[in-house]
Nucleic acid binder design. Structure first.
Lengths: 136, 136
DNA sequence: TGTTGCCTTGACGCCAGGGGCAAGGATTAC
DNA sequence: GTAATCCTTGCCCCTGGCGTCAAGGCAACA
């Protein structure tokens, strides 16, 4: 199959496939006319890449999975290098989520404080909000 | 005060201050010789920007806070536009944290599954890990 | 008078992951 | 025959927030 068909079947673009090839991630055979040629196994590699990318893995992090599949393993994560990437990613995610949660709480506190200050500055203002019900 | 001093006092660089100016975020007066001139209130604006940047706000999101201070309000978040940014950021953070948590759990499951498969494939292998204790 | 040291503008680089276009060759359909 | 698709390579563009020169001007101190 040629590049357009592979791209269509994987739900991506030819530009992306050429980019992966330029990174050495998904090299293609060439037909006599210079056209890139792919087979079903390439589709499998490509799907592995896209799945991990959807998880937020960057391209380099998908490399061990791709090489694992190319080496004949049944799954991209059947190799130690892939497991190492999983573990590192898990740590990264935990750290990032922790950080973001901290920021989230800080922002929430700032918001609450600023809202209180605004309400104090505009007493009996335009937003009584929830007291004693509205007109419904 | 000139640009180098302001940068030093805010813990940032002159390049950064010129960049902010190019974005219209922190314009400077000019001395007769063309040098940028700042005062204490600029330092305050700059600190507001840096604080929000540290929270992961991008530059444009800091603009309402800066304008609020410049308008004479005691705090950068004393204005409705700033509160709106807080709320939007809070939503973004919640959404992002939720997404990342989902990915985290997926990766964790994949890792556990792949580790089990690897162990099944190498029975009595090199990592008995926690059963019946080691040599200690 | 030189030599630092700060200042000015302008311009390119960088990171990822491609988008988009140009100029041309190959193939296929009618 | 020729028009419509496909394919090729190569090149510049984009985002954010600056870093890093480069070439030159201004100020202060010895």
């Amino acid at each position: 199959m040629r590049i357009g068909e592979l791209a269509a079947r994987a739900g991506t673009t030819t530009r992306t496939l050429r980019y992966y090839e330029s990174r050495g991630l998904l090299p293609a055979r060439r037909a006599g006319n210079g056209y890139r040629t792919y087979d079903e196994s390439d589709l499998r590699l490509l799907r592995q890449i896209r799945t991990l990318q959807d998880f937020g893995f960057d391209l380099e992090e998908t490399r061990p999975f791709v090489e694992c599949l190319r080496a004949g393993h049944p799954e991209g994560d059947s190799c130690p290098a892939s497991l190492a990437v999983y573990r590192r990613k898990l740590d990264e995610l935990d750290s990032l989520i922790g950080q973001l949660s901290g920021v989230r709480d800080t922002v929430a506190r700032q918001l609450a404080r600023a809202e209180l200050a605004a309400e104090a500055e505009a007493p009996g203002g335009p937003e009584p909000q929830c007291e004693l019900g509205g007109d419904w």
